[in-house]
Design a protein around this nucleic acid. Structure first.
Lengths: 173, 173
DNA sequence: TGTATTAATGTTATAATGTAACATTAAATC
DNA sequence: GATTTAATGTTACATTATAACATTAATACA
């Protein structure tokens, strides 16, 4: 499931527009169920539903967009409904928050807590998630020099994915 | 002004509690004035005042805290007063936004646009800013492999600075 | 120097994001 | 079954940020 490319552990690559996303969703849900079972945590119907909504695609999803969707299904849904589910999912490693977008993205590899480097396409919104050994080591070594104890890392790289750069070229946009 | 430590360009190190902060403020303002003059941009009194407020210390400052301070000086100040000044200062490289804190921190080295790695102490709130060549090169090389074109990087490392770890130890907290 | 133009700021309103606090319901424990 | 804890419901509000239009200040240039 996890490919190693030049010491980069690719948690989630950029996906072609036409990939079979049902598979992504299914495997994410399977992973979530397994993870929660292993940890003795409850993936309640609400939490699962929020996770599904986060996994609509490979783009970060906004909390209030999730809320809007939940309201379609249950009119009384409110912000805490969403934020509590998102908090739980983040604690289980099933969802990450993209801080620079105030948005949330699913993670298909929750089993071991890991560092992440997010590459975020500003054109199509797609995100690739890596856990690159070299980046981790380098950040650790810098922290070490600074005598800094790392608790958490937010690494969010914004720009344009290959697909969008190609499209842009083709359309002379 | 810029020290090179093991290929890390230290934009702003962690400072001792008792450092002469007036010097930091003064040199930041001097740099800002020079930078704006060079670029033909106007560091108006309002913009300068906001910059001074950002430079109160080496901790990220919240927009609404700046607003509260401005209101003391001019009761009619409103959110756009602050956000417009912050936008300008960010464009000039005089201020960076810490995305994971929704807060803003001054940058004393605006002359050339650079990448930043922020180390953020969760205990005392202090921030160190680096521009590490190795990090930059590594991120670039990963982007290159992904055929990803980088526009901007947000790298925010959270944890505890040496000073706070030592204190914690001493106080058995 | 006055006039046109642009840039900056003022002002009001509202949007977007997130949390506190307490009530209720459901699940697990014993 | 009673007790306790976990999860969700509900209302209210706090925080962060922007839109839109009016006014003032600065710059350009006739």
């Amino acid at each position: 499931m996890i490919e190693k490319v030049n010491k980069s552990r690719v948690i989630s690559p950029f996906k072609p527009d036409n990939h079979a996303h049902g598979e992504c969703l299914k495997s994410a849900l399977d992973a979530a169920k397994l993870q929660c079972t292993n940890k003795g945590m409850r993936l309640t119907p609400l939490r699962q539903r929020v996770l599904e909504l986060v996994w609509q695609n490979h783009e970060p999803v906004k909390a209030y967009d999730i809320l809007d969707a939940l309201k379609q299904e249950k009119a009384s849904s409110a912000p805490p409904t969403v934020y509590r589910a998102l908090d739980f999912l983040q604690q289980q490693g099933l969802v990450h928050k993209i801080e620079s977008l105030n948005a949330y993205i699913g993670c298909g590899h929750p089993f071991e807590s890991h560092s992440s480097q997010f590459f975020i396409c500003q054109r199509c919104g797609s995100v690739a998630e890596l856990d690159d050994t070299n980046v981790n080591r380098l950040i650790d070594s810098i922290a070490n020099e600074l005598k800094f104890t790392i608790e958490h890392e937010h690494i969010e790289i914004k720009g344009h994915c290959q697909n969008c750069v190609t499209k842009k070229h083709n359309s002379h946009a």
